[in-house]
Each structure stands twice: as structure tokens, then as C-alpha cells.
């Protein structure tokens, strides 16, 4: 009998199989590994899986989405931070002599005008709603108004936008400054504002300074209220005043406050060009 006569059809290697030998072999002793070897190998296999990281491809498949989301968030936060910081540098790219384009806050920007026309303009027109600090009202009356206003504000929470009104009314009350808790801390800012304000309005420097201080003190003294914003008192000022103030703050080293004010400036005057170096002004 030949091998092919005994082939087991359908089995692997059927061309070289002997079905009788296959049956006989299966009836032979079926020895197996001892149980302790089984346990040791299975434990080793589990240890190996637990001890080593998964293959890179598998790990990437599992963590692809969370890692992508995390990377996106980190990138977005970095970009926003960078853009905000870069915004400050924009100030240094614009020529210092560029006149501001005054716009009333909260209104849509007007159509862009040619740069030459802006440059030829001698001075920016003051907004119609701009408050005039140097009013002809008697000095004593203004002081009384400011004191009355301070007393009122100390008693009740003050809305954020009420500050300019306080400033206007309190201009000319220098003796109120020592009473304010925040007066000393705001002194450098007041000094900075004084020069700009007095130049623009012609009001006495002491009056302007005290008005600034009172405005800030009135806000900070209200229980439950946060500090007054750095642009308090500039809401109705032209953009150039804002820039002067920002440059002043930077020169004084108050970069954070200057940054806040610059952000507010950009929000209010989005199309206004920025000078190249506000600190040099």
C-alpha cells in the first residue's frame, strides 16, 4: 500500500498523510505540560502585558482624539495669549505723529479715510459729547458737588459707567484725596493723567489730579465692587488721550494696567492707528 492510498482527504498536508497512523497517534499517550508550568507561563504573559506599554500604533489609536483635543486647546490658548501680547507691540509700528481718528465709543467705525488727509489735519476734532473739565462753574460749588457725590457713592454700589460723572463733578476738590483709601496707590496714575488733562482742558493740575484720585477712590471704596478700570475718566476722551495715558503707564512700569487700557482702547477705537513706541512719548 502506498502513502497516497492512505491519504486523509481535506487535512493539511493530505498528500503525505496516513489516516491509520493519524488515528493511532491520537490514541497514544497525550502528555501535557505540568500545571505549575502552565501557571508560570500564564503569569509571565500577564506580567508582560502589564509591565510594558502597548505598541505605539495601538496607543496612538486609543489616545488620538484626546491628544488632538488637548493639543488644539493648548494651541488656541497660546495663540490668543500671543495675539494679545503682540497687540501691544503694534503701538510701536505706527508713526507717532499720526493724528487719531476720534470715534464715539459704541458706534460703528466710519469708512476709512486716506492717510494723507489724516496727516494734514492739524488736530483731531473733539467729540461732541466730550465733557469739558474746565467749566466756568465756581470752584467751591464743584468741591461741594464732589463731596456730596463721594458720600453717596460710598453708601451704595456704584455702576461701572458712573465714574466719568463722578470725575467731572469732583474736579477741583483736592482736599478729598487724603481721605481716600486708594488715593496714595493711585497717585502715579493721577500724576500721569494730570499732564494730559491739564494740557487739553486748561484746568488746574491739582484739580485734575484730585478728580482722578477721587474717581478711583470712589470706585474702590464701594463694598463689593472691584477696582476702577484704568481707563476710568477716559471714556469720553479722544483716542490721543488714551494713547498718552497708555504711554505714561508704560513709562511708569505699570505694564499690566497699560495692557488693560490698551485692550479697552482697541475695543473702543478698533481702526485707530497705534504709535510705534508709546513709552517714548
Amino acid at each position: 500500500m502506498t502513502v497516497n492510498d492512505r491519504n486523509s482527504g481535506g487535512l493539511p498536508g493530505a498528500e503525505e498523510r496516513d489516516s491509520r497512523l493519524d488515528r493511532l497517534y491520537r490514541e497514544a499517550e497525550r502528555a501535557g505540560p505540568p500545571a505549575h508550568l502552565d501557571a508560570a507561563l500564564l503569569a509571565a504573559a500577564r506580567r508582560e502585558v502589564g509591565a510594558r506599554p502597548r505598541p505605539l500604533a495601538s496607543a496612538l489609536r486609543k489616545w488620538r482624539v484626546p491628544v488632538s483635543i488637548a493639543a488644539l486647546v493648548v494651541l488656541s490658548v497660546s495663540l490668543v495669549t500671543l495675539v494679545r501680547e503682540e497687540g501691544g507691540d503694534e503701538l510701536m509700528k505706527v508713526a507717532p505723529g499720526t493724528p487719531p481718528a476720534p470715534k464715539p465709543s459704541g458706534m460703528a467705525p466710519p469708512p476709512a479715510q486716506p492717510a494723507q488727509a489724516d496727516a494734514a489735519r492739524p488736530s483731531p476734532p473733539a467729540p461732541a459729547a466730550r465733557p469739558e473739565p474746565a467749566r466756568p462753574a465756581p470752584r467751591d460749588d464743584r468741591r461741594a458737588d464732589a463731596q456730596a457725590e463721594l458720600g453717596t457713592m460710598a453708601d451704595r454700589p456704584q455702576p461701572f459707567l458712573a465714574a466719568p460723572r463722578v470725575e467731572e463733578r469732583a474736579a477741583g476738590s483736592p482736599q478729598a484725596a487724603p481721605d481716600m483709601e486708594d488715593g496714595a496707590m493711585r497717585a502715579p496714575a493721577a500724576v500721569a493723567r494730570r499732564s494730559a488733562k491739564s494740557v487739553a482742558s486748561g484746568a488746574p493740575a491739582a484739580e485734575v489730579e484730585s478728580a482722578r484720585m477721587m474717581a478711583g477712590s470712589a470706585q474702590s471704596g464701594v463694598p463689593g465692587q472691584g477696582k476702577a478700570p484704568p481707563w476710568q475718566g477716559y471714556e469720553k476722551e479722544p483716542p490721543q488721550k488714551w494713547l498718552d495715558r497708555i504711554a505714561e503707564l508704560r513709562r511708569q512700569g505699570e505694564t499690566a494696567v497699560a495692557g488693560e487700557m490698551l485692550a479697552e482702547f482697541k475695543r473702543r477705537f478698533p481702526d485707530h492707528p497705534l504709535p510705534p513706541d508709546p513709552g517714548a512719548r
Binding site: 502528555a31 501535557g32 504573559a45 500577564r46 502585558v49
Partner: peptide, 26 residues
């Protein structure tokens, strides 16, 4: 499956082939 970290896959694989491999070596 075992390569990707499933120890249960190895258990099945081992159960299938432990006898044959052991007898082959023995």
C-alpha cells in the same frame, strides 16, 4: 490580540497549543 495587550488572548492561544508543543518537544 495579545500583542495589543489582551492577556486573555494569550490564555486561549496557550490552551490551544500547549499540548501539541509540549509533546513535540518531549
Amino acid at each position: 490580540g495579545y500583542r495589543d495587550g489582551d492577556a486573555g488572548a494569550f490564555d486561549s492561544l496557550y490552551a490551544r497549543h500547549k499540548g501539541g508543543l509540549y509533546r513535540y518537544l518531549l
